[in-house]
Amino acid sequence: MVCCEHVARGVAGCYMQVCHGKYGPLKRIQPGDWVAYYSPSTQMGGKDKLQSFTAIGIARAGDPYPFDMGGGFIPYRRDVDWLPAQPAAILPLLEQLDFSRGIRNWGAPFRFGLFAISPHDMQTIAKAMAADRSNSPALHPIQATQSSLFQRLYMQAKHVEGFLVSGLSTRTKNSDEFNPTTAQIPKLWGRFFSEGLMDKIPERIANSPIYGVYSGYESDANGQYDLTAGVAASSPSGDFNHVAIQAGPYLVFETRGAMPAAVIQAWGNVWAYFEQNPQIKRSFISDYEAYLGPNEVHIYIGVAAE
């Protein structure tokens, strides 16, 4: 049982991580075992009832291994070949699954974090998710997974002229965002939208998209950074925070889909892209999300000039 946001990161990186990074549960999984993720919510501690199976795959050969995520958190992971699949809601499947049929408190087994299910149940889940690795039998599963992940994520290079964004800011780091008690980003966006601040910034440029700007990086993706939720502005305002978008080269990742799941998956794919292309260096000066509609977001990642 893992929130959809964390599942997207695991699928993008071709790994699984359970029970707060414990070694023991992963050791029980053997190479060739099928595994499926169930997500009760989109974000960790979220109140939305996603209640869906969100990933399914096959464990690769090899043992669990430690991975340093920064901030002193070193969880264990196991590599998985995730299959092309679609999320499947659990409620229509409750009477079809052995572990939930006729059971009122069907969610109880998920509290263990990882538990075994019957081959029948795994087949039922795979069918509901339309999991398929037969499209290209000669294709290595990881390649098939990458094709599936990127089918709705489009990337291009652009030169961006600098501009100003005004809004609300917070300072955080990714390791804090994994914990709902320390996460700041949901609170920031919640206040931004609940107070209608996009329409209250007096210097707002007409028809500006809503931006989420990442700046003030302490080091890299593991260090602290500032996040500003706001709109493009013609000049700073004393009532709001402001941040300058650095002019220069950016890689732009465009994605469409239901929010916030689409942007969460997009970030997972962005991180995977830079892991797989180490020759392309991020600048860690300013990055930003541009929300161009209710179901479309463009993620701009600043890169070092060649």
Rank of each mutant, 00 (worst) to 15 (best):
P119R: 10
Y65A: 12
P84A: 07
I280F: 04
Q30D: 09
D220E: 11
I103H: 03
I58K: 14
A290T: 13
G72M: 07
C14R: 08
S234V: 03
P75L: 03
I29D: 02
A229C: 09
H298Q: 09
I103Y: 02
K47G: 06
P119D: 13
R171F: 00
T42V: 14
Q43H: 14
W34E: 06
S134Q: 13
N277W: 03
R204G: 01
Y23L: 15
Y288D: 04
I301H: 07
L188N: 12
K27M: 09
I280G: 10
N135I: 03
P202I: 02
I58R: 14
K22W: 09
L114T: 11
A258I: 13
E289Y: 10
A130Q: 15
D220C: 03
G223S: 06
D81A: 11
R111V: 06
Q51W: 09
S136K: 11
P64E: 09
A36Y: 02
V303R: 05
T145Q: 12
Y37R: 01
F163A: 00
P92H: 11
D79F: 02
I142K: 15
P236Y: 11
V18Q: 05
R78C: 01
G268N: 01
I264L: 12
H6E: 09
A85D: 08
Q151C: 07
N207C: 12
L26D: 02
V160R: 03
Q151L: 04
S134T: 15
M122Y: 07
Q86M: 13
S166D: 04
G212N: 02
